[in-house]
């Protein structure tokens, strides 16, 4: 009797395993399918941003772009560096471009803070490491997207990002949002978030919120694949820097200094 009971349990276990395996095969097939259709509908856009540091530094304590972004996207103001969430923020030039180590840096850049964002890399390491495809690069326009419904909060993408561009919700962010914008969701605790290049505004035909907010016109947004776009013109006429280009991530935020 003892043996039959055990056999029964084993059989039940095997059955459960079989059921999961069947489902798994189906999901795998489905997933491969969506991958190909996504790349097929590509329209050949490549969004990028040019930051003209010279114009940005005209007003040093300016926070217009940060405020606009954070209000649009319900980014909470948590008030401590441990738990803080930021989509755009300012850092010392020397830290942003640590690979440009130079004791005799041009005076107008020394100890100056410049805006940084997600670089929307062409070869994003965060996407490579995500175990659930909750973050991925859109083939049609290069935006590195986030799916906050799917993110499990393992924070591997934060670990893999060489730019510190990603933030994690260590707690429910809602109490820390002063004025909730009902047009955009807030996030739940336990998911990662970052700049989305204002993917929603782009779909509505608008420019990113930060670009629109910058009175100095220091932020220029456009399509790199369009020869006549303003970003292409600026890059043609000016010397530009990208953050940590040696890592092969191909950042799509360009800095004019």
């Amino acid at each position: 009797m003892d043996v039959t009971r055990r056999k029964l349990l084993k059989l039940a276990g095997l059955g459960a395993l079989g059921l999961t395996a069947g489902k798994y095969a189906k999901v795998f097939a489905n997933d491969a399918f969506t991958e190909t259709t996504l790349s097929e509908i590509g329209t050949g856009k490549r969004w990028a941003m040019v930051v003209d540091v010279r114009k940005c530094l005209v007003k040093e304590d300016c926070r217009e772009c940060i405020n606009a972004c954070h209000i649009t996207h319900n980014v909470p103001n948590i008030g401590n560096t441990k738990d803080e969430i930021k989509w755009i923020w300012k850092e010392d030039f020397e830290n942003v471009f640590s690979d440009q180590e130079n004791h005799y840096l041009k005076e107008n850049l020394k100890d100056k803070r410049i805006p940084i964002f997600c670089n929307h890399c062409d070869n994003p390491p965060c996407v490579r490491v995500c175990p659930t495809q909750a973050t991925w690069k859109r083939e049609e326009d290069g935006i590195v997207m986030m799916d906050w419904h799917r993110c499990i909060g393992c924070r591997y993408c934060i670990v893999a990002c060489p730019y510190g561009s990603r933030s994690f919700n260590w707690q429910d962010p809602r109490p820390f949002i002063d004025n909730i914008n009902s047009e955009f969701p807030t996030r739940s605790k336990g998911v990662v978030e970052k700049c989305t290049f204002c993917e929603k505004r782009l779909a509505e035909g608008k420019q990113p919120a930060c670009v629109e907010a910058c009175k100095e016109k220091a932020l220029v947004f456009g399509n790199l694949n369009d020869q006549n776009s303003e970003v292409r013109k600026l890059l043609k006429e000016n010397f530009s820097l990208r953050r940590k280009p040696g890592l092969g991530t191909e950042p799509e935020i360009y800095y004019l200094v």
Binding site: V129, T132, N169, V191
Partner: peptide, 26 residues
């Protein structure tokens, strides 16, 4: 230890539902 480190433990099965061979965590 993986389970307690996850921000959204209820969605842990997403690792299996959306298998991602490029991720070492998978």
């Amino acid at each position: 230890f993986v389970f307690v480190d996850i921000g959204q433990p209820i969605r842990l099965m997403n690792i299996i539902l959306y298998p991602s061979p490029s991720s070492i965590l998978f």
